[in-house]
């Protein structure tokens, strides 16, 4: 049976990533939370040296290593590329970080959103200034 549990799956065999017939959270062992599962969507994954050659990883984790092997790639991008739900990728990434295969870079503090005040984003003025100048120069 080749149904596509997440919609666009079937169209992407060109990726070499086979459409999964496995329920999404099966690949996390059924967990929907992990210690680091509130990683930001935009957190960047970096593969540790030598990790690409790791053995014994699940196909999903291998795919993450491949996608992140030569560039920083965000959790959101991994979710899109692997056609896995964000929550699943978060857990896999958190696992892989614990296992020492990857490093996760987060630019923003994880617990900033208070809903009050204007510095909710935790971003500094100098970063905003760089963004402003960068957009202006595009």
């Amino acid at each position: 049976m080749t149904h596509a549990p997440f919609g666009s799956l079937g169209a992407h065999s060109a990726d070499g990533y086979e459409a999964s017939t496995v329920r999404p959270y099966a690949v996390t062992g059924g967990r929907v939370r992990s210690a680091l599962s509130d990683l930001p969507l935009e957190a960047l994954v970096e593969v540790m040296p030598g990790a690409v050659n790791s053995v014994g990883l699940t196909p999903e984790k291998r795919a993450i290593l491949q996608h992140a092997a030569h560039t920083y790639v965000s959790i959101a991008e991994l979710s899109a590329l692997l056609r896995l739900p964000l929550g699943v990728v978060r857990i896999l990434v958190a696992d892989m970080q614990e296992e020492g295969h990857i490093t996760v870079h987060t630019s923003t503090p994880v617990n900033v959103h208070t809903g009050h005040g204007s510095s909710h984003s935790g971003l500094s003025l100098s970063v905003l200034e760089s963004v402003l100048n960068g957009i202006s120069a595009l």
Binding site: P5, G7, V32, A80, R83, L86, G87, V88
Partner: peptide, 30 residues
């Protein structure tokens, strides 16, 4: 790019192993 967040977290029990495709609109959000 398009990504799908997991409604699964919030709708435990809705999905099933042989889920039919017309359920996907209720279980994912793009």
């Amino acid at each position: 790019l398009n990504t799908e967040a997991a409604m699964t977290e919030h709708s435990v029990g809705v999905d099933d192993a042989g889920g039919v495709s017309d359920r996907k609109t209720t279980t994912t959000v793009a």
